[in-house]
């Protein structure tokens, strides 16, 4: 038996990385600040700096690959769409060029650049948080803060349900194809093939949820009294707390300065 694995539960779960091992709520705190800064400043240069900073944090927590995989595509897609639309459709005085019925103006380009980088910067905060924090760790902290375990169950279980139903939908789609149900071709045909894929999936899951309720009841899911946790996270260290307070103070000071000044 793998006692090394078992004994790992006796100690706090760590990944030996300063950023990853921060308390999930501390991470959330820092990342929220990063997301709010570009909203307050409203300059594309600041947004770009923040975006670059995300990559830095991702690299420092050895999550660069996961982060880039999701973020780069997303940033290019959302960023370019938001930019192009503003550049094309926002009217202004300073006309840069005319293509057919579109007039591209300096105002449009400026606004597009500012807005696109802002949205991309805010998106980055979410993506970074999701790659740097495991859902189960966040849920564990929330439970310790008094969130009922039925609530955290709902969240964690929906993540697994997405995986399970996703796999099943692939299976059903393949077998529907094999049975000659059209999943390509005319729109009407494709719409018609939607229900035979989703219907059985959904209905099966509904009937399974009844069994799941019974199974979880047997696991004392509703037992009165406080539940304990096999996994535990590192308690928030004094230095983590103080740095966090400092960051928050600086941030509040910055906001006040921006608003008053």
């Amino acid at each position: 038996m793998d006692y090394e694995f078992i004994n790992s539960f006796k100690k706090p779960q760590v990944q030996n990385n300063w950023f990853l091992d921060l308390n999930p709520l501390s991470k959330l705190n820092i990342i929220l600040i990063l997301a709010i800064i570009p909203i307050v400043v409203k300059r594309w240069e600041v947004s770009v700096v923040i975006i670059l900073f995300y990559f830095l944090i991702a690299a420092a927590s050895s999550r660069l690959k996961q982060f880039s995989k999701v973020y780069v595509r997303l940033a290019l897609l959302i960023g370019s769409l938001l930019f192009i639309m503003r550049a094309m459709f926002i009217p202004g005085e300073d006309v840069l060029m005319k293509i057919g019925f579109l007039t591209i103006t300096q105002e449009g380009v400026d606004h597009g650049l500012q807005f696109a980088t802002l949205v991309v910067a805010i998106c980055g905060a979410l993506v970074l948080y999701s790659v740097a924090t495991q859902a189960r760790d966040l849920m564990l902290v929330l439970e310790k803060k008094g969130v009922p375990h039925t609530a955290t169950y709902v969240i964690l279980s929906s993540l697994q349900s997405i995986i399970d139903l996703g796999n099943m939908s692939k299976l059903i789609m393949e077998s529907q194809k094999a049975r000659g149900i059209e999943t390509e071709g005319k729109v009407t045909n494709r719409i018609k093939s939607f229900f035979p894929i989703l219907g059985p999936l959904f209905l099966g899951a509904i009937s399974n949820s009844e069994e799941k309720a019974i199974a979880m009841d047997a696991r004392a899911f509703y037992a009165p009294g406080k539940n304990t946790h096999l996994r535990e996270l590192r308690p928030v260290s004094l230095s983590e707390k103080s740095v966090l307070i400092l960051i928050n103070l600086v941030f509040v000071g910055f906001i006040v300065w921006r608003v008053v000044g």
């Binding site: 279980s157 929906s158 997405i162 939908s169 959904f202 009844e210 309720a213």
Partner: peptide, 15 residues
Amino acid sequence: LTIFLIPIGIAVNFI
């Protein structure tokens, strides 16, 4: 039962 249907609803939205 509602507790166990919520995750299913979420997954079905997704899928």
